[in-house]
Design a protein around this nucleic acid. Structure first.
Lengths: 228, 228
DNA sequence: GTCTATAGCATGATAGAC
DNA sequence: GTCTATCATGCTATAGAC
């Protein structure tokens, strides 16, 4: 069970620096800087700038000149952290994958009741995409442009989320707690609703709807459909 | 009330040629070809190629050389139909706008019962996005990269769809046919579910789910939430 | 490790032949 | 109306100074 957004945030310990340290250690091929205390802060800025600039114009339209100006490194300096522009995608993608897997696993292990587990997963996903909104947006929008490997990895993690939801629903149906309906379609539209939170973030801000309210609303729609 | 997909298709008379004829007549500034019988078939190919190539790599990554090779016109010939690359976006956008407005207006005028009208709108939108899948996908993915004017037009039409859904729900609540719930959020997630049909078209093909089945499923989720 | 300068290339757009 | 040839620009990526 997830208490509230603030607790979630703290529990996840989403320090940008910490994440970038993991990325640094996981990518010695592309990052040719030896000293961790030098590399990590620069990585934070590079990834941050990439997400911001890509959001505006798309990844292809972002030039490395723009990026170097925004993150404060020169073009040459930038190329000590990546071998080419595509490496940037990989750097950005990797920590999102990491955190999504970690979070979903965490919130599906300790709740026995299927309905409660389902609501917890929905809330965890909304909260996670709230904290990593730029990343989720980037990942969704740029997936189709990725080289094959990265593309498959991105599709795989999307499918994993849907599978988790589907698995919970299947268990609920089997145990008789949920109605016997087309749970594959319901899992698919569940994901569509969760996605809308980060794809249309600005709209919901205008509506003055918060993450908790949205997650609980989606939960209530699912609950009403699953239970008589 | 919409009977079935085939009737819908015929009623809309979605001949690519016909649509491109309208586009040709609406854009004398960018299209400098005088003879309609020459211009229209070329326009069909240009728009078709643009949608296909953009789908693969994104609009920015599609070069005009790629496009000219794909549509069979030379670079120079292409520039008789557009003044610059951004004109291409406008050509592609315009007929989608036209058809979306026309279709929604048509299916919200003749059904008095709010529930039936809601289900009709959902089905009409799913059917429309099934017929114009490449266009809907393009519009969603490229909106953020558009110059201001086109961007606002694209956001406006999205908002119109949501408003139509919201209006129907409001009427149902007022007349006591629907439960009094947060219909603004429900309208928002309705749109999210409708969008998923064209954003994840391939997934639903793999699931062997058709447009009618999907529309009716979304309708049943909404109906169950709105009615006791 | 980071910078400046630049090579090498692909792109959007145009001019003029046919 | 459509083509081929070409221009100017802006891009990714690299080399070498510090």
């Amino acid at each position: 069970m997830i208490a509230d957004f603030e607790s979630f945030k703290i529990e996840l310990s989403l320090s940008q620096t910490e994440i970038c340290r993991e990325i640094y250690r996981a990518n010695p091929d592309s990052i040719r800087i030896k000293k961790e205390h030098v590399a990590v802060p620069n990585l934070v800025r590079i990834i941050d700038s990439t997400l911001r600039l890509t959001r505006r114009k798309g990844f292809h339209a972002m030039s490395l000149r723009d990026l170097s100006a925004d993150c404060g490194l020169s073009i040459g300096g930038l190329y000590a952290y990546i071998r080419n522009k595509d490496d940037l995608i990989h750097l950005v993608q990797s920590h999102g994958f990491l955190l999504t897997r970690r979070t979903l696993a965490h919130y599906t292990h300790d709740t026995p009741d299927p309905l409660q587990r389902l609501l917890a997963v929905v809330k965890a996903h909304v909260y996670l995409s709230e904290l990593l909104q730029p990343w989720f947006y980037f990942s969704f929008m740029e997936t189709k442009n990725l080289p094959r490997r990265h593309k498959q990895a991105a599709i795989a993690i999307e499918q994993e989320v849907e599978s988790v939801v589907h698995g919970i629903m299947a268990e609920g149906v089997t145990s008789g707690r949920f109605r016997a309906i087309d749970i594959r379609l319901l899992a698919a539209v569940s994901k569509a609703m969760m996605q809308d939170w980060y794809l249309k973030r600005r709209k919901y801000t205008n509506y003055e709807v918060g993450a908790t309210q949205y997650a609980e609303f989606v939960g209530s729609v699912l609950q009403r459909y699953l239970i008589d």
